[in-house]
Computed example of a mutant assay.
Amino acid sequence: MTGRAGSRAVTDDRPPAGAARPAETARRARARLLGLAASRPVHLGASLSVVEILVCAFATMRHDPRDLDRPDRDRLILSKGHGVWGLYSVLAELGVAGLDEPRAGHPIDGTPGVEAATGALGHGLSIGAGLAEAARLDAADRRTLVVLGDGELDEGSVWEAAMFAAHRRLNTLIAVVDRNGMQQEGGTEAVLALEPLAAKWAAFGWRVIETDGHDCAALTGALRTARTPDDRPSVVLARTVKARGVAFMEGSAAWHYGQLDEEQLTAALAALAAGERGA
């Protein structure tokens, strides 16, 4: 696992910039993300829906953007790798340097803040389970968070990893499902029904926590609960909206992947601003 170039050691545990203002950090990250989408095709829907999940995850993790190599850090694996522009934007807002130049459309090794290369769906939870098993063998309390898409749960390898994690009682492993109800081909329940999703995870031996994936207070509370002692891995089912923040994109599979022209960018930024004023 790489991706922590150019970091420097620090000796304090002050929270990173933006950690105390998650809603504002999320708003700024969305605006940054929209600007990126004006210059290249981006998986917009998946990146916009996951913003609060990433902001609140980093706010609850042992993670310092000034020292991305600290050995006791918690790890975050973005298993839904096509949402990486959300990750780049959030990390940049939190102060991680080196993310302003063009990057690949999926997480790649050597990128600041990226713990693992992902993209082919269904592998992130296996990576996370391996990291959690290593923490167990080391008797370390570092957490591993894995952010999955709900369409990604169609992959059988996700459930193999879920069984392994429960069997090994990997209680430092937290999965977060971006439950926006959409995937590339359409609605998840039409493509391959997932419900009753909470009951499925519980049957696999996981502690299940459900929350609003755009309410920063509720989401932070859910993630903190997932960190409390238990003898099982935990999963947070975060209800979200595809392309959250831009009204004319929200809930549309058409914006799973695309590029904004100048007129669309202006409209998207206006929609984002209007939504924030009305919140």
Rank of each mutant, 00 (worst) to 15 (best):
D215I: 07
W85M: 12
R62F: 06
S126H: 08
E160G: 06
P229D: 11
G124P: 04
D109K: 09
A217H: 10
V191S: 07
E185F: 15
E155L: 11
A129G: 05
L44M: 14
A226R: 11
R227T: 09
R27H: 15
A165C: 09
G86F: 04
A218F: 03
D74N: 05
A218W: 02
S39P: 00
A31I: 06
A193Y: 10
C216P: 00
E52F: 01
D212P: 05
E115P: 15
G130L: 00
D150L: 13
A279L: 10
M1F: 09
H106C: 10
Q183M: 15
D13E: 12
S7V: 13
I53N: 08
A46I: 01
L68F: 08
G6A: 11
G258Q: 01
E250M: 01
V84E: 01
A120I: 14
E155S: 11
A97F: 09
A23P: 02
A104E: 15
G151P: 02
A19M: 11
A162E: 02
L121K: 01
W255H: 07
A140N: 14
A29S: 08
G86V: 04
E250Y: 01
T11Q: 10
T211D: 00
A270H: 12
L34D: 03
E262C: 02
A117E: 13
Y257H: 12
P65R: 01
R32D: 09
L121H: 01
V55W: 04
W255N: 00
V55I: 11
M1D: 13
L153Q: 06
W206T: 02
E133Q: 14
V208Y: 08
L197D: 00
G213F: 01
A238W: 07
G110F: 05
R8N: 14
R232M: 13
A20P: 02
C56Q: 10
E52C: 05
A17R: 15
A267I: 01
A254E: 14
T240W: 00
R168C: 12
Q264G: 05
